[in-house]
Amino acid sequence: MQNSHSGVNQLGGVFVNGRPLPDSTRQKIVELAHSGARPCDISRILQVSNGCVSKILGRYYETGSIRPRAIGGSKPRVATPEVVSKIAQYKRECPSIFAWEIRDRLLSEGVCTNDNIPSVSSINRVLRNLASEKQQMGADGMYDKLRMLNGQTGSWGTRPGWYPGTSVPGQPTQDGCQQQEGGGENTNSISSNGEDSDEAQMRLQLKRKLQRNRTSFTQEQIEALEKEFERTHYPDVFARERLAAKIDLPEARIQVWFSNRRAKWRREEKLRNQRRQASNTPSHIPISSSFSTSVYQPIPQPTTPVSSFTSGSMLGRTDTALTNTYSALPPMPSFTMANNLPMQPPVPSQTSSYSCMLPTSPSVNGRSYDTYTPPHMQTHMNSQPMGTSGTTSTGLISPGVSVPVQVPGSEPDMSQYWPRLQ
């Protein structure tokens, strides 16, 4: 039975679970980093996980050691009161100082060594604690504590007292930064006198190289990059290397530039699409467009005044059976039934097929058609009795279509119309 579990990581490298990497692998990681390889490249070359490479390099940059820390136990506290007071002093002298600059000053002034120097995250935590204590304490208590930490007896009751030896409130920041720059020169002199001055200088240079600022491109470089971006948004590694040799930039910087440029292009394309949609959409909808001609068919113009009344309900007709019959029939052209047409008796099958359309009241044959006459024609229609054979009435077949029909004066039988409509 094995005491430890061995495995293979996602890159194909072998590791022992819970145990640190061998010293030979750690040394190779540092050597590759000094030669300029990126952590992701080191991870692929040595088949070590990216997190492990970053952790080893980060500890090497901070402490200069590649040895693993002790497994188990607690780390001794490195942010001692003396170190905290120095950090507060540096922050007062130059409020814009960075944590890694404070760390360098602690090393250069001999406050800490490589073994007990606090990390950048520890210094940031100390600065946050100082800021929170400043908010919790009152103004007087804060000034007393700062005077105690600074070891001075001057008056701290006013704002300019934060910067000793100065009279203009805006000047101390520059003086403090100048003092810090002077301390940086002392850093070089002190570290050069040490035993491991060369190694420390190499480590600091490598650290500065990794902690780079934003790349500033010249106009020629920007023009070359934009020209390549117009050709393709995704250049391959050969195109990037050719462009890197042409404009004297690292291939990694060119790759990052193209990634950022593609993101910018997507944002601009989104804005262009929004403007295009806004320009195509009308600002207001016309009133006429809300009524579609496919839904509402136009009603033909009436030929006679009587045809303006298109349904039985508008003429005072309360018989719903006839109203439904007229509205359900398709529109037909106007025609006239003459008196000489043969009077065919209704076929029983045809009569039964339209039995649902006729009223059940037996008085329908005896009703006159003056009910369908509009009010303004009552006088004219009353002067001509319906009993004469020459009287013409208008029957409504569908809305908007008038059918003048000659009705025999002897017997106005409704059943004569249905064979004609089939």
Results as ranks from 00 to 15, higher is better:
Ile123Leu: 05
Ala70Cys: 08
Pro95Leu: 09
Asp140Met: 12
Ile117Leu: 14
Asp23Val: 13
Ser65Lys: 06
Gln89Cys: 15
Asn124Gln: 14
Ser65Trp: 03
Tyr143Asn: 11
Gly72Lys: 05
Asn9Phe: 00
Gln135Asp: 08
Ser74Leu: 01
Leu107Asp: 09
Gln136Trp: 11
Cys112Arg: 07
Arg92Lys: 14
Leu146Trp: 13
Cys52His: 00
Ser49Glu: 00
Gln10Asn: 06
Ser132His: 12
Tyr90Thr: 12
Phe15Arg: 06
Ala139Glu: 12
Val111His: 13
Val14Gly: 06
Met148Ile: 07
Pro22Lys: 07
Lys75Trp: 03
Thr25Ser: 06
Leu21Asn: 03
Leu130Met: 07
Val120Arg: 15
Arg38Pro: 05
Ile87Trp: 05
Ser54Cys: 10
Tyr90Arg: 05
Ser96Lys: 13
Met148Asp: 14
Lys91Glu: 06
Thr113Phe: 13
Ser49Gln: 03
Thr25Lys: 14
Ser43Leu: 01
Gln2Asp: 09
Leu107Gln: 15
Leu11Ile: 06
Thr113Gln: 13
Leu106Glu: 03
Ser49His: 00
Ser4Lys: 11
Val83Asp: 02
Glu101Arg: 12
Pro95Val: 14
Ala33Arg: 14
Gly73Phe: 01
Thr113Trp: 09
Arg105His: 09
Gly141Cys: 13
Lys91Met: 02
Val16His: 13
Ala33Glu: 05
Val120Ser: 07
Val30Arg: 07
Gln2Met: 12
Pro76Trp: 01
Cys94Ser: 13
Ser121Met: 00
Pro68Thr: 03
Gly73Arg: 06
Thr80Met: 04
Leu46Met: 08
Asn9Val: 02
Pro118Met: 05
Arg92Thr: 15
Asp140Trp: 09
Ser43Thr: 04
His5Trp: 08
Ile45Asp: 09
Tyr90Asp: 04
Met148Ser: 10
Pro68His: 05
Ser6His: 15
Gly7Val: 06
Arg67Gln: 12
Asp115Gln: 15
Lys134His: 04
Arg125Leu: 05
Cys94Tyr: 12
Ala37Lys: 15
Lys55Leu: 03
Gly12Pro: 01
Ser65Cys: 13
Val14Ala: 11
Arg19Phe: 04
His5Ala: 13
Val16Asp: 06
Gly36Gln: 05
Thr113Lys: 12
Ser85Asn: 13
Arg69His: 11
Cys112Glu: 00
Pro81Thr: 08
Ile97Met: 15
Ile42Asp: 01
Lys75Val: 05
Leu57Ile: 08
Ser74His: 03
His34Ala: 14
Leu11Gln: 08
Ile71Glu: 01
Asn9Met: 03
Val111Arg: 10
Val8Phe: 08
Glu82Phe: 12
Arg125Cys: 04
Val30Lys: 07
Gly12Asn: 05
Asn116Trp: 08
Phe15Gly: 03
Met137Cys: 15
Gly138Met: 12
Val48Arg: 01
Glu31Trp: 14
Ile97Ala: 13
Leu57Lys: 03
Asn50Gln: 11
Asn124Met: 07
Gln136Phe: 13
Asp41Asn: 07
Val126Leu: 06
Ile102Ala: 04
Tyr143Pro: 13
Lys91Val: 02
Arg44Ser: 06
Tyr60Gln: 00
Ser121Ile: 01
Gln27Met: 15
Ile97Lys: 15
Ile117Cys: 14
Thr80Ala: 02
Gly138Lys: 15
Arg103Glu: 03
Ala70Lys: 15
Ser43Asn: 00
Arg69Gly: 06
Arg77Asn: 00
Thr80Phe: 06
Val14Asn: 09
Leu146Arg: 14
Leu21Gln: 02
Gly64Cys: 04
Glu101Ala: 10
Lys86Asn: 11
Asn116Ala: 11
Ala131Ile: 10
Ile97Phe: 12
Ile117Val: 15
Met148Phe: 07
Arg59Ser: 03
Val30Trp: 03
Ala70Ile: 07
Glu133Asn: 13
Trp100His: 09
Pro20Cys: 02
Ile117Ala: 14
Ser119Trp: 06
Val84Ile: 09
Arg26Ile: 02
Met137Gln: 13
Cys52Trp: 00
Thr80Gln: 03
Arg19Glu: 03
Leu11Phe: 09
Val14Ile: 09
Arg125Pro: 00
Met137Asp: 11
Lys145Asp: 12
Val16Gln: 15
Gln89Ser: 10
Cys94Gly: 12
Arg26Ser: 02
Ile56Tyr: 02
Pro95Gly: 08
Met148Cys: 10
Leu46Trp: 05
Ile29His: 00
Asp144Met: 11
Val30Asn: 02
Arg147Thr: 13
Arg44Tyr: 07
Asn3Gly: 12
Arg19Val: 06
Ala131His: 09
Gln27Leu: 14
Gln2Ala: 10
Glu62Lys: 14
Pro22Tyr: 00
Cys40Arg: 06
Ser35Met: 13
Cys40Val: 09
Val53Arg: 00
Ala88Met: 07
Gly72Tyr: 00
Arg44Asn: 07
Leu127Asn: 14
Lys91Ile: 05
Arg26Leu: 01
Arg128Met: 00
Pro39Leu: 07
Lys145Val: 11
Ser49Trp: 00
Ser74Arg: 10
Asp41Arg: 06
Cys94Ile: 07
Glu101Pro: 04
Ser132Met: 11
Ile45Asn: 07
Leu11Gly: 06
Gly18Tyr: 00
Asn17Tyr: 15
Ile71Leu: 06
Val8Met: 10
Asn17Val: 15
Gly18Asn: 00
Ser132Arg: 13
Arg69Ser: 06
Arg44Gly: 06
Gly13Ala: 03
Asn3Gln: 12
Tyr143Cys: 10
Thr113Gly: 12
Arg44Asp: 04
Ile29Leu: 05
Lys86Pro: 03
Ala70Pro: 14
Ser54Thr: 09
Asn114Gln: 12
Ala88Ile: 14
Asp23Gln: 09
Phe15Glu: 03
Gly141Val: 11
Ala33Met: 10
Asn124Cys: 06
Tyr61Val: 15
Lys28Ile: 06
Leu106Arg: 03
Leu21Thr: 06
Ile71Lys: 14
Gln47Arg: 15
Ala79Gly: 05
Ser65Asp: 08
Glu93Trp: 05
Arg38Phe: 01
Arg38His: 02
Asp115Arg: 13
Ala70His: 10
Lys134Thr: 10
Arg69Val: 03
Thr80His: 06
Arg67Asn: 08
Asn129Ile: 09
Cys52Gln: 01
Val84Thr: 08
Phe98Glu: 02
Glu31Val: 10
